[in-house]
Design a protein around this nucleic acid. Structure first.
Lengths: 253, 253
DNA sequence: AACGATTTGTTCGTATGTATC
DNA sequence: TGATACATACGAACAAATCGT
């Protein structure tokens, strides 16, 4: 008997959950007191087992109600190599593969900040320069889907792209606007993707448990213009439990 | 006082860790008994706080030794859109961005199986067909880095590509071998990327905690030939705590 | 090699608080 | 309002791992 009691209970419950013996049909698991009697352990030991199931994302507890099996979420698929379609904003949304789902975007929160750290570095700015940031919350079927912040050099506004400061979504796309206004054409981008624990803002917005169990996927997109000069940085975070990504590469012949 | 005691202790410890006041220089945190006295709480309550820090990946406990601040791992960066360089195997390794790191690959474990599920579907096979799978363990600087399984139609072997059954790494690349032997040229691929909890094999190999805290990133790559027909499926899993990915897109003019 | 001290891990019992029905 | 269920907190005991003597 190498394993602790709580672990054996957890494995037993996992088996019963995966075979559908427990929790099917939205019914709750037996209460902690019932499990205590069933496994002849203390309530604390049973709770340790349930905590392990929670950490695996198999169940969730609702105070005053019971312990429920977590229903799998139909994942939303985002392409990181979508073709640039005119009229489709590359700034606020990536192309969606899933039909029949309603994507909505909040109006952006505009801020003007000092350029700092990696953003300044990648945009070729110094600490004295300013950047415009446009922060948006994005939903699918009214479910919190991603948080997105895009940075532009403040110089763009000075040179005439004043609409960057308008706190309103541009469905036709900021990329197209910059092309018309400043002659800056987007010719490509590089994404850097990492998985990390959510911060408090992300936990709140996505409704994630505060134990850091569900990770977020952070994608930093650096877009370059016709001179291969980075002109825009977009940072998007997605909760890992309901997002997938695709990358399609066609080698040139 | 809306927050539980364990949470306040955890936040306080987090602050002290992030400012370097605690745990810097590889020293252990105060023992649970010391923390109990310091915060005037019970040992169990202190342990709840530490558990939260563990779940955030900030600290780790070592039985008989103490609680230590987790050292950040220098992430390994993998490109999902690397150019196909002759001589570089696209089968066993993606291109690495990080210099000075030694990548090694185990000899493959070869299996012949019935084609099932998505693999059969994407390769255009039926349940009666067989597939060859080549499973490899990959290391960077002798650290477990990824697990990879590649599936080919058994028909390839029948048609002459018998080396698919040789349990030995092909540094020059299976892709090149298939091109020479069968005239199948890889012209592109599609990756599907998801984040999920590790299974037991992955936890063991990567040395992950068994509480599912550290997720794995699973990438399923479907490669297509000159007729746009899928001919190879590669499933690779990476531990999320030490891997990043890049995607570079250059729009054609 | 053996032992004792220290530290984390497991398990129990108990009491009280809070949310839901 | 009362009953039920999960959440928090405390105290206690023993086990297991580690380290220094």
């Amino acid at each position: 008997m190498p394993d602790p009691i709580w672990r054996r209970i957890a494995e037993d419950l996992r088996l019963k959950i995966e075979t559908g013996e427990l929790g099917s049909g939205g019914k709750a698991l037996p209460s902690e007191l019932e499990l205590r009697d069933e496994y002849r352990a203390s309530r604390n030991t049973v709770r340790d087992a349930v905590k392990w199931l929670i950490s695996r994302g198999l169940v969730e507890t609702r105070p005053g109600q019971g312990t429920y099996v977590v229903q799998a979420i139909d994942p939303f698929v985002t392409s990181l190599t979508a073709e640039h379609s005119p009229g489709v904003s590359q700034t606020t949304t990536y192309a969606s593969e899933v039909a029949g789902r309603k994507a909505t975007v909040s109006d952006p929160r505009i801020e003007v900040q000092k350029a700092t750290g990696k953003v300044a570095e990648q945009l070729g700015l110094t600490e004295d320069d300013s950047v415009v940031s446009r922060h948006q919350r994005r939903f699918i079927d009214d479910i919190a889907w991603s948080l997105q912040t895009t940075f532009y050099p403040m110089d763009f506004v000075v040179r005439g792209a004043t609409e960057l400061l308008v706190p309103q979504d541009k469905p036709e796309g900021v990329v197209q606007y910059l092309a018309e206004k400043l002659g800056i054409r987007q010719t490509g981008w590089t994404d850097i993707m990492q998985v990390r624990a959510p911060d408090e803002v992300e936990s709140d917005f996505f409704g994630l448990p505060d134990d850091g169990r569900v990770a977020v996927i952070e994608i930093r997109r650096t877009a370059v213009d016709q001179d291969k000069k980075p002109f825009r940085i977009t940072i998007t975070t997605y909760p890992a439990d309901r997002n997938q990504f695709t990358v399609t590469v066609v080698e040139n012949e």
